[in-house]
Design a protein around this nucleic acid. Sequence first.
DNA 1: GCGACAG
DNA 2: ATCTTGTCGC
Length: 224
Amino acid sequence: MISEAAAIAEQEKLREQIITTDQLPDPIRYIAGTDVEYDKASDLIAGSIVVLDAETLDIVEIATHCMQVTFPYIPGLFSFREMPPLLAAWEKLTQKPDLLICDGQGIAHPRRFGMASHLGISIGKPTIGCGKTKLYGHYTDLDIRKGSIAPLLAEDDVAIIGNVLRTQEGINPVFVSVGHMISLETATNIVLNLAKQYRLPETTRIADHYGRLALEEFKRNNSI
DNA sequence: GCGACAG
DNA sequence: ATCTTGTCGC
């Protein structure tokens, strides 16, 4: 297994490749949600990528992959844990999406290289980081109303590394950041538009659902 | 030494 | 992530 030091060196190297401007295809036709489910008892994880029609949000394709965990959970090195099952699921996909929304941070990370950026660089596709909680940075004055945003600032108090976005009035916000090949503004708008009814974008909710199903089915088929 | 710490 | 019902509040 890759060492912690090697993982950090890898992040420092790959972060150079991140593109923080919009490089999206003209009409975005397919968007995808990614998520990884865990089974504490068996150490199994399931990577899940669900492709949706960007216009109707109808499900176009579902790809999942179950395997044993290969890396411990270390804040800041999270992608090394979730990348293996996601890349395996990615290989199974027939219809590759134009954009992926990941369950975790993009550049809102101590070394500016969270899970969404790592995945985006690895597969060469635009990605958005959308985490349920904060990993890094600080913010103030986030209004209670839906659609409100507060910039997520780095230690220097100057660099904006993401947006804290209130997707539903009075409900805990989500943390949006650039993964790869997209601007923060576009990423924020897309996440808000995908969270019409719930706190999390529809892509994440659907990926979570099918990842859960895949993990349960895998356990059943293998008597775990 | 004391918090913070994606899933 | 996961362990997990009722309960406090709008």
